[in-house]
């Protein structure tokens, strides 16, 4: 299973990467939305994208919109956010976000949810 992690905070990226790799997931990382799109093009065998919401260059939602508008084939997207609002949720839905993770992401929960979304 290959997962794309898009996250601008290196610490956070590493932390999640570690958690996922511990469970034998293959993890591809990108530090902003643009790089995320590139990584998506380079890796066609992704099972899941986990992306941060606020990132420089191209934020998470915009990345999703781009994927949608350009018809880029992509796996389900989990968006990570610190706080949510119904408006954000609506926008996410439009942009094709599968579900929202809440920061700080807890390892155990992250894993079980990743597993569920991939299976789903």
């Amino acid at each position: 299973m290959k997962i794309l992690l898009v996250e601008d905070s290196q610490n956070y990226l590493n932390e999640m990467k570690e958690i996922l790799e511990d469970q034998d997931y293959e993890v591809v990382t990108a530090t902003d939305g643009l790089k995320g799109l590139e990584a998506l093009k380079d890796n066609t065998d992704l099972s899941l994208i986990i992306s941060d919401l606020n990132m420089p260059n191209l934020d998470g939602l915009s990345m999703c919109r781009k994927i949608k508008s350009d018809n880029i084939p992509a796996p389900p997207i989990m968006m990570v956010t610190t706080e949510g609002s119904t408006e954000l949720k609506r926008q996410g839905k439009e942009a094709g976000v599968r579900c929202w993770l809440i920061k700080p992401v807890v390892g155990k929960m992250l894993l079980s949810m990743v597993e569920k979304v991939i299976k789903n």
């Binding site: 706080e83 579900c99 809440i102």
Partner: peptide, 24 residues
């Protein structure tokens, strides 16, 4: 903030979203 986020996220969503949010 967490409670707020949970409330913003779960309604009208599926079980996966709930299970993620429930934790908070």
């Amino acid at each position: 903030a967490n409670i707020n986020t949970v409330f913003a996220l779960i309604f009208g969503e599926d079980i996966i979203q709930f299970e993620i949010a429930e934790y908070y």
